[in-house]
Lab assay of single mutants.
Amino acid sequence: ATNIVSKVKWYNSTKNFGFIEQDNGGKDVFVHKSAVDAAGLHSLEEGQDVIFDLEEKQGKAYAVNLRIK
Rank of each mutant, 00 (worst) to 15 (best):
27 K>H: 10
55 E>M: 14
25 G>M: 09
51 I>V: 11
1 A>M: 13
52 F>Y: 13
5 V>Q: 12
25 G>N: 10
34 S>I: 10
58 Q>C: 14
55 E>F: 14
15 K>S: 08
47 G>T: 03
32 H>I: 03
20 I>Q: 01
31 V>Y: 02
67 R>K: 09
24 N>Q: 10
38 A>R: 11
13 S>C: 12
63 A>V: 05
47 G>F: 06
23 D>L: 15
8 V>G: 01
44 L>Q: 01
37 D>M: 15
2 T>M: 12
68 I>T: 11
4 I>V: 11
59 G>A: 05
36 V>N: 01
2 T>C: 13
63 A>D: 03
65 N>G: 03
30 F>Q: 01
14 T>K: 14
29 V>H: 08
57 K>D: 09
66 L>W: 00
8 V>S: 00
63 A>H: 01
15 K>Y: 11
69 K>C: 14
1 A>P: 10
52 F>T: 02
7 K>W: 07
40 G>H: 07
32 H>V: 03
43 S>K: 12
2 T>S: 10
8 V>N: 00
68 I>F: 10
25 G>W: 08
18 G>E: 00
27 K>Q: 11
57 K>G: 09
68 I>L: 13
6 S>G: 15
57 K>M: 10
65 N>M: 04
29 V>P: 01
50 V>D: 00
3 N>Q: 08
24 N>M: 10
34 S>K: 10
67 R>Q: 08
14 T>S: 13
52 F>R: 00
53 D>F: 04
2 T>A: 10
39 A>G: 06
11 Y>V: 03
26 G>L: 11
56 E>I: 15
55 E>R: 12
46 E>V: 14
41 L>I: 10
27 K>N: 10
56 E>L: 14
2 T>G: 08
65 N>R: 09
39 A>T: 06
13 S>I: 12
16 N>Q: 13
6 S>V: 05
33 K>V: 08
50 V>C: 04
30 F>A: 02
14 T>H: 12
22 Q>P: 13
43 S>Q: 11
28 D>A: 05
47 G>P: 01
3 N>L: 06
23 D>W: 15
64 V>Q: 05
10 W>T: 02
15 K>D: 04
49 D>L: 15
29 V>W: 08
55 E>Y: 14
9 K>S: 04
8 V>H: 00
16 N>T: 07
55 E>N: 08
54 L>K: 07
26 G>P: 08
58 Q>S: 12
64 V>A: 07
43 S>M: 12
69 K>G: 12
3 N>I: 06
40 G>Q: 07
25 G>K: 09
13 S>V: 13
29 V>L: 07
52 F>E: 00
57 K>A: 11
24 N>Y: 11
11 Y>S: 00
36 V>G: 02
35 A>H: 06
28 D>L: 07
1 A>G: 12
17 F>W: 08
29 V>G: 00
54 L>I: 15
52 F>C: 03
48 Q>G: 05
39 A>S: 10
30 F>L: 04
51 I>Y: 07
41 L>V: 09
58 Q>K: 12
19 F>A: 02
67 R>L: 05
62 Y>D: 03
32 H>D: 04
63 A>S: 02
11 Y>G: 00
45 E>M: 13
20 I>M: 08
4 I>Q: 09
64 V>W: 08
2 T>E: 10
42 H>R: 13
46 E>Y: 11
59 G>D: 07
8 V>K: 00
45 E>L: 13
56 E>T: 14
7 K>I: 08
67 R>N: 05
69 K>M: 14
48 Q>E: 09
46 E>K: 15
48 Q>D: 10
3 N>Y: 07
31 V>F: 11
48 Q>F: 06
22 Q>D: 11
37 D>E: 14
22 Q>I: 11
45 E>H: 15
9 K>M: 04
2 T>V: 13
48 Q>W: 13
13 S>K: 13
69 K>N: 13
17 F>S: 02
46 E>S: 15
16 N>E: 09
3 N>R: 08
31 V>P: 00
60 K>Q: 10
68 I>P: 09
4 I>P: 05
69 K>I: 15
18 G>I: 03
42 H>L: 13
1 A>Y: 13
61 A>Y: 14
16 N>K: 14
62 Y>V: 06
61 A>R: 14
36 V>P: 00
23 D>C: 15
46 E>C: 13
9 K>W: 02
39 A>Y: 02
61 A>C: 14
50 V>I: 14
67 R>T: 06
17 F>N: 01
12 N>C: 10
3 N>S: 09
33 K>G: 10
21 E>N: 11
61 A>M: 14
67 R>C: 06
50 V>Q: 01
7 K>D: 01
31 V>Q: 00
42 H>G: 12
21 E>D: 08
6 S>Q: 06
51 I>K: 05
49 D>W: 15
64 V>L: 04
59 G>M: 05
59 G>S: 05
16 N>S: 10
22 Q>Y: 15
37 D>F: 14
51 I>H: 05
31 V>R: 00
63 A>T: 02
57 K>N: 11
